[in-house]
């Protein structure tokens, strides 16, 4: 059952004197939703940024088990991380291509395979059959995901005109169109109403069960995290303080302390730490 997909070993990220992530290790598996939670500033997004090549980690190893070989993400150029290793990501703020149509947003994500088929667009201009086929397949995959997120009717509208919740799901669909190994979602439920969150949960479950990718999730909405996660990693001040299934994490005293503060111990450092978090 257990298929380790992403192995994070001793990841540390330092910005000058600030240690954003300190010696964090965890494993994300295929066909599972792994959530990273923690108070604001715990280093969750930094972990994502290291995974997707925005930052080069100070220390640590990020191994992604690919189909043929292992990829060491910390050594790869950022565009190759998406292209070769198959890491797809969404952001806290929406980063669609707003002036392009909904469908085009999904086609851009399949650019590399189209590029190969189109002979660098030269053949494409002349309508060569192999290119036509590739383009047809790309559109097909795009439509498949548009149906999954119920946006098939709005395929030709500019992505920027969609309502917020739809843009969120379109972003996830776009990430899936890159045919990734692992899907990294940074607060996908932020700003969604309960109904939209429920839709999102459905989509994430579908992705987990049907497409066989691993999902890595950062989220503040605890009810959502507890509902759909298979595995939870808790960070606080850049350190991993707990890990396990939702039930064990919920009842873990360290986690409760990190989120609620500790009333029992009143030594100076703790009081200061709690003060910082308010």
């Amino acid at each position: 059952m257990s298929e380790p997909l992403l192995t994070v070993e001793h990841l540390s990220m330092r910005f000058g004197g600030l240690i954003a992530v300190n010696d964090v290790s965890f494993i994300a598996e295929k066909r599972r939703i792994t959530s990273i939670i923690g108070p604001n500033g715990a280093g969750k997004t930094t972990v994502f940024n290291c995974l997707t090549g925005f930052y080069k980690p100070t220390v640590g190893r990020l191994v992604l088990a690919g189909a043929e070989k292992e990829h060491y993400l910390e050594r790869m150029d950022d565009f190759r991380i998406g292209q070769v290793a198959g890491v797809a990501r969404t952001f806290q703020n929406i980063r669609l291509f707003p002036a392009m149509s909904v469908l085009e947003n999904l086609l851009v994500a399949q650019h590399n395979k189209l590029m190969r088929a189109s002979g660098w667009s030269v053949l494409g201009l002349f309508g060569v059959p192999s290119y036509r086929r590739a383009e047809g397949a790309a559109v097909e995959l795009g439509r498949y995901w548009l149906e999954k997120i119920n946006l098939i009717d709005r395929a030709d509208e500019p992505a920027g005109d969609l309502p917020y919740g739809d843009q969120r799901r379109l972003e996830i669909a776009r990430a899936m169109c890159t045919e990734p190994q692992i899907l990294c979602l940074d607060e996908p439920a932020a700003g969604l109403n309960p109904r939209e969150t429920a839709d999102l949960n459905g989509l994430l479950r579908f992705i987990r069960d049907d497409s066989g990718v691993g999902v890595l999730l950062i989220e503040h909405d605890m009810s959502m995290v507890m509902e759909i996660s298979d595995h939870i990693v808790v960070l606080d001040y850049g350190q991993k303080i707990a890990e396990g299934d939702p039930e064990s994490v919920r009842s873990n005293p360290d986690v409760i302390r990190a989120y609620l503060g500790d009333d029992e111990e009143n030594d100076d450092i703790d009081a200061e730490a709690i003060g910082d978090r308010q």
Binding site: T52, F54, D78, F79, R80, I81, G82, Q83, A88, R89, F91, R95, F97, P98, A99, M100, V108, A109, H111, N112, R174, T178
Partner: peptide, 14 residues
């Protein structure tokens, strides 16, 4: 795509 969001384009493997 690069014109609208270069970083995101690069993340999508462009």
């Amino acid at each position: 795509a690069c014109e609208q969001d270069m970083k995101m384009a690069s993340l999508l493997g462009l």
